[in-house]
């Protein structure tokens, strides 16, 4: 609490009668978690303070994770059941909404410490557009027709793995978030995402774009909080079928990967520096989508 009071101490406030006259009190935003398509307070009732001391943000806990996974499990089959074309249009709609909120996103990134906020926002919007285009194409690249030696017709198709837990990179806080969510959800997965701890407002602000796009509630759920507290719960949650861990070192990963074996989670652990997220060849490769699909092989006899 001490820290909190101090943080607010150098903010402007009316000190004189002249200042008080016509003084307007700004309406501050209460940052909330984004779960099941709704903005909710942390179940814990606690909040954390942003690095600049300007805002409180929710201190997400394992119970928030539980709620988010539940929402994601509920939303995932419907999302996967949409046509690929429809998923593509919804992602494109998300890009439109992001473009409309460009200035707000830039402003947020600047506050959150982004080195080049304009460029990051542009890249993020473009990333969504790129994946919108992937929605009905990666299947053609990943699927196969299997020339089996017998009177059977065989083919293999990619299918979503289910609900994926994403631990987004700290930086770039928007592009890393968008760039890790898109390859997961484009194939029909739902995601439970832990946003950047360094810049939590950006993650939650992004959710306002999600909420006003046509993305069904629960497909993407975003938590903020302490990585050190939440990672182990991501790893052990039996409802998460896969984990997408960004910039988690071997030592930190070890207990997570041990816990993840309990339901044989598919753990994808990658490291990418801030510049790497701007490498579009790499970050929009179908390999990224492939990491979160299952291959389903189907056989049927041929003969009447």
């Amino acid at each position: 609490m001490n820290e909190r009071r101090q943080a607010g101490s150098d903010r402007r406030r009316p000190a004189t009668s002249e200042e008080a006259d016509g003084w307007r009190v700004a309406v501050k935003k209460t940052w909330k978690l984004y779960i099941g398509g709704a903005f909710v307070r942390s179940e814990s009732g606690h909040s954390l303070v942003t690095a600049d001391g300007d805002d409180n943000y929710p201190h997400g806990t394992r119970k928030d994770l539980r709620d988010a996974v539940k929402a994601a499990i509920g939303a995932q089959p419907g999302w996967a059941g949409r046509t690929a074309y429809n998923r593509g249009q919804i992602l494109y709609r998300l890009a439109e909404v992001l473009e409309a909120r460009r200035s707000e996103l830039v402003h947020g990134l600047v506050r959150g410490g982004s080195a080049d906020a304009e460029t990051e926002v542009s890249a993020s919007i473009d990333r969504v557009v790129s994946y919108a285009g992937w929605s009905d194409k990666y299947q053609s690249l990943l699927a196969t027709s299997n020339p089996v030696a017998g009177p059977h017709f065989g083919f293999s198709v990619p299918e979503p793995v289910g609900v994926v837990g994403i631990v987004a990179p700290e930086r770039p806080s928007l592009l890393g978030l968008v760039g890790s969510i898109c390859p997961v959800i484009v194939s029909g997965n739902a995601a439970v995402v832990l946003g950047s701890e360094a810049d939590p407002r950006t993650a939650l602000g992004f959710c306002e774009a999600l909420a006003t796009s046509d993305l069904p509630g629960g497909v993407v759920n975003v938590l903020t909080g302490r990585r050190s507290e939440l990672l182990s719960h991501f790893a052990s949650h039996m409802g998460l079928r896969a984990l997408d861990l960004w910039n988690v070192d071997d030592e930190t990963a070890k207990p997570l990967e041990v816990a993840a074996t309990e339901n044989v989670k598919r753990v994808t652990r990658r490291a990418l520096d801030e510049r790497g997220w701007y490498d579009t060849d790499r970050t929009t490769s179908p390999s990224w989508i492939h990491s979160f699909v299952e291959t389903k092989t189907i056989w049927h006899p041929m003969g009447a």
């Binding site: 299997n146 017998g150 293999s156 291959t295």
Partner: peptide
């Protein structure tokens, strides 16, 4: 589908 336990090297 309408068969079972079929395998082939070309089939994942």
């Amino acid at each position: 589908g309408n068969t079972y336990n079929k395998f082939d090297p070309s089939s994942p």
